[in-house]
Design a protein around this nucleic acid. Structure first.
Lengths: 199, 199
DNA sequence: TCCTATGATAGCGATACGAAACTATATTGA
DNA sequence: TCAATATAGTTTCGTATCGCTATCATAGGA
């Protein structure tokens, strides 16, 4: 009966939650609250399409109103800045300021990242790919938006022949630099299994 | 500059926090709050020595006052019961009720546990052992109490020759059943490397 | 012109947390 | 035996955060 409760996957999930709590960063000297850390990390890692309050709300699984409050606090503190989008007058373009990038150096997550970095390389790779699978699987189960990097996305079209290493997003119809391939995108869709071209 | 922010260990740590948030269980129909789920899971997995409010406070990295409130709410809801300790009149012995065990079947953590369970077996084992390492490492860095199961503990003395499969904790000076070997203990101390099975 | 989408804001409630005061029991030492 | 101290636990109170539900303003698309 209690076998299911003490199974290895459940144990792993408990450790996962435990580690998540340990890195909230609201207990220590706490430059930021937990929600604010999440927002700052998100805007530092999201691509152009996703650096908006709405995308952050989707990422954080909350409402736009709540996301707006979190962003406002970070803008007031000088860690984010709000710019106008030239194409869409409704949208707000959020950018991390220099102060925000400096603050990220004190991210309480570094404690966990450091611990992960000390794992043997093979174990480190295994952890990362396992976590990616679990993140994708839970997002699918919860039917929430599935965030991911462009390099893994179905909408990526390589234009190497045309422009020597350029990339293109078929969904948003914009050009992507090599650097942007590693950023989070709200429009992410996983590639169909089998690699190359879609079915 | 942003290389450190986007390193693989940091990315893994972010996914970890993200998954932890997804399983708080306070957003859904929510039988319990996040803190209450953590408490219920803890008392379902802790051994005799650790089923006290103080041990839970240490585990959850909070104060005894806060832990007492969380326990009180679960006792009022009928998921935990408070018993008197016969040896120590000050101590409270917390036990999970039948209703509590039934509720654990609806643990929101099951979403993540199921996703982990669907990983390939090798990846599953790699994830679990990596997480164990990270939990131990972060506990060491934060100098917090290090929880673990008796089977991995330095204080465990095997008494197989004497009583046909009995075990004994040298720290608390109590006998341990085979079942208790897999439970969490607040007095856990890791074995010195080399004593048991090397990594 | 309707309808939709992005975003900001105010108000409300729930929760969690910590500090401090308090009770009760154990332990220690004289 | 009695006093002093330490420990386990509870309770109260104040505070901060968080998140949701409106509601509103503006901008884009049909």
């Amino acid at each position: 009966m209690s076998d299911a409760l003490l199974s290895d996957p459940h144990l792993a999930a408990e450790m996962l939650v435990h580690l998540g709590r340990a890195a909230r960063g609201d207990g220590a000297e706490a430059g930021l609250t937990a929600a604010q850390w999440t927002a700052l990390r998100f805007f530092a890692r999201a691509n152009r399409l996703s650096r908006t309050p709405s995308a952050f709300a989707a990422f954080h699984a909350t409402t736009r109103g709540t996301a707006s409050q979190t962003v406002k606090a970070l803008v007031a503190a000088g860690y984010l800045e709000r710019l106008r989008d030239e194409r869409d007058g409704r949208a707000a373009r959020i950018e991390v300021t220099a102060a925000g990038r400096a603050l990220l150096a004190a991210d309480p997550l570094h404690v966990i990242a450091a611990a992960i970095g000390r794992l043997p390389p093979a174990q480190q790779r295994a952890l990362i790919s396992a976590l990616q699978n679990v993140v994708g699987e839970t997002a699918r189960l919860r039917e929430g938006p599935c965030f991911g990097v462009c390099a893994e996305c179905r909408h990526l079209a390589a234009l190497k022949a045309v422009s020597a290493g350029g990339y293109h997003c078929e969904e948003a119809d914009i050009a992507l630099s090599a650097e942007e391939l590693e950023q989070l995108c709200v429009a992410f869709a996983p590639k169909p299994p089998g690699g190359g071209s879609p079915a």
